[in-house]
């Protein structure tokens, strides 16, 4: 992968929780680069550091050591205020639990990151995005009136609204049935293929990972391999043998 086209790079990323003998190294030196317009799945068993990786890459938590470079800017040493501004301009988030504001309509939820940035959301853009995720008619509905799949589509539209450099997705299909999950993954795939977006998705589902261009495997906080053009079967096989790789 050519580093010059990388939109997100992490260098030797480490994150330790706690101190002394009780400390846990969630990340123990991860380096990776994610090129613009690619879809990467980050996989690994529980406790492999997947979520910590995402948290550090998003600038939510500073790493213990290592660097995070987003869109050419080294954000590692930025303060909370500056990282927050960067997040709302350059990073879109999709979570397992959807995390929509229960008291805002679909359209208001989609426009929220712009409001936080002090801008008035453009109605046309918001409804175009809702149209794109297949919810054109539901703009005025509250999350409570929508299914899980619909809520996740709203969350994806929200992630796209600021036209971010990268979309970070944390188990986006973890709370969905397989048919709904497939349509959400199609949607993410479409964001990459048609909008040229960059998606980094943490998942433990080989079927979900098969939608990505590349799979990055993490074990015990380290990169334990990668696979291009993955299939569900190949990924599942690889996951089953991950412990051999590290040993």
């Amino acid at each position: 992968m050519n580093a010059s086209t990388a939109v997100l790079e992490v260098h030797d990323l480490a994150r330790t929780y706690g101190e002394g003998t009780g400390s846990v190294a969630a990340l123990a030196g991860v380096s990776a680069a994610f090129a613009r317009g690619t879809f990467t799945a980050v996989m690994g068993p529980s406790g492999s550091g997947k979520s910590t990786f995402l948290t550090c890459a998003a600038g939510l938590e500073p790493p213990t050591s290592g660097r995070v470079v987003l869109d050419g800017a080294d954000i590692t040493d930025w303060d909370e205020e500056r990282r927050t501004r960067l997040r709302r301009e350059r990073i879109g988030f999709v979570f397992q639990g959807f995390h929509l504001m229960p008291y805002l309509t679909a359209a208001q939820n989609v426009g929220l990151p712009l409001r936080l940035a002090g801008r008035r959301p453009d109605r046309v853009r918001v409804s175009a995005l809702l149209e794109r995720v297949g919810l054109g008619e539901r703009a005025g509905h509250l999350p409570a009136a929508m299914s899980g799949g619909q809520r996740q589509r709203v969350a994806i539209a929200r992630a796209l609204v600021a036209d971010p450099a990268v979309i970070l997705a944390d188990e986006p299909t973890g709370a969905l049935d397989s048919a709904t999950a497939a349509s959400v993954l199609e949607l993410l795939r479409g964001c990459v293929d048609e909008l040229g977006q960059t998606v980094v998705m943490v998942t433990h589902d080989p079927v979900a990972a098969a939608y990505a261009d590349t799979v990055l495997f993490l074990v015990d906080g380290r990169v334990a391999g990668r696979m291009d053009r993955p299939t569900a079967t190949a990924v599942a096989g690889q996951l089953a043998r991950l412990d051999e790789w590290v040993a």
Binding site: R87, R88, E89, F93, L112
Partner: peptide, 10 residues
Amino acid sequence: LLRTIGATPR
């Protein structure tokens, strides 16, 4: 969540 998607602590 608000802070994650871009609300500053302030």
